[in-house]
Amino acid sequence: MTRGPRLLLIGPPGAGKGTQAVRLAERYGIPAISTGDIFRFNVKNETELGLAAKAYMDAGDNVPDSLTNALIRDRLGESDAANGFLLDGYPRTTDQVRELDEYLAGNGTALDAVVELQADPEIVVERLRKRAVEQSRADDTDDVVRHRLEVYREQTEPLIGVYGSRDVLVPIDAIGSVDEVTDRIVSALTGRGLGTAA
């Protein structure tokens, strides 16, 4: 079996990471590992972790590293992630980058590419406002969205510098139709010799 790519999808809230993650995972036959999905599953099922995570999520803050790292290590250890994976929403901080680096190095692997979805903040706020109405999501109020964008800028943007210096960063314009953005990503990855699409 040919190995799929090991990808990280990064970008501000509302840039379309969740949508693209599902499409890319399908295209390359790899699991999309989303911290948001993992947290929402735990919140919905009122697990101990879920209740702890909910307080942070409701305030628009990131869940602490200790909770997140444990979940991700656990998920990457599952058999379906052995031949490639796509991370969405992790790592968010340079500390989490170190944690992920250590975990992957311990398994003799590393990330193949970090896809950075780029989007104008005002377009993002408008997208999330629309999503809040469509999905009745209480965590998508304007104030919370702007706070999340601020948290993203402070904590996650430094990752762009880290991965940029490793020459694995692939910047993608995230404005356009879902198909257009997917095509841009696949084309950029193919250009790097990554993942023949399934």
Rank of each mutant, 00 (worst) to 15 (best):
G4H: 04
G4R: 02
L7F: 07
G16C: 12
G16P: 01
K17N: 03
G18K: 05
V22N: 04
L24P: 00
E26M: 11
R27T: 08
G29H: 07
P31Y: 02
F39R: 00
F41K: 11
N42P: 04
N45Y: 12
N45S: 14
E46P: 05
T47H: 11
T47R: 09
E48N: 11
L49V: 08
G50R: 03
L51N: 10
K54Y: 06
Y56N: 07
M57H: 13
M57C: 13
A59L: 07
S66L: 12
S66V: 14
T68C: 08
T68Q: 02
N69H: 06
A70D: 07
I72Q: 01
D74M: 10
D74W: 09
S79V: 09
S79Y: 06
D80V: 09
L86A: 01
D88M: 03
G89Q: 00
Y90T: 04
R92T: 09
Q96H: 05
V97M: 06
D101E: 15
L104C: 06
A105G: 12
A105D: 13
A105W: 08
A105V: 06
G106Y: 11
G108C: 14
T109M: 07
T109I: 13
A110L: 12
L117K: 03
A119Q: 04
A119H: 01
D120K: 11
D120I: 06
E122T: 15
E122H: 12
V125Y: 00
V125I: 15
V125F: 04
K130F: 08
R131I: 08
R131F: 05
R131L: 08
A132N: 07
V133N: 15
V133R: 15
S136L: 11
S136M: 14
R137F: 09
T141A: 13
T141H: 09
D143Q: 11
D143E: 15
V144Y: 00
R146Y: 08
L149D: 10
E150R: 15
E157K: 12
I160E: 01
S165I: 08
R166L: 11
R166A: 15
V168G: 00
V170L: 13
P171F: 03
I172C: 05
D173I: 04
I175T: 12
G176L: 03
D179S: 10
V181F: 02
V181I: 10
T182M: 12
I185N: 00
I185Q: 01
V186R: 02
G191P: 02
R192K: 11
R192A: 10
G195F: 02
A197E: 10
A197K: 09
A198C: 08
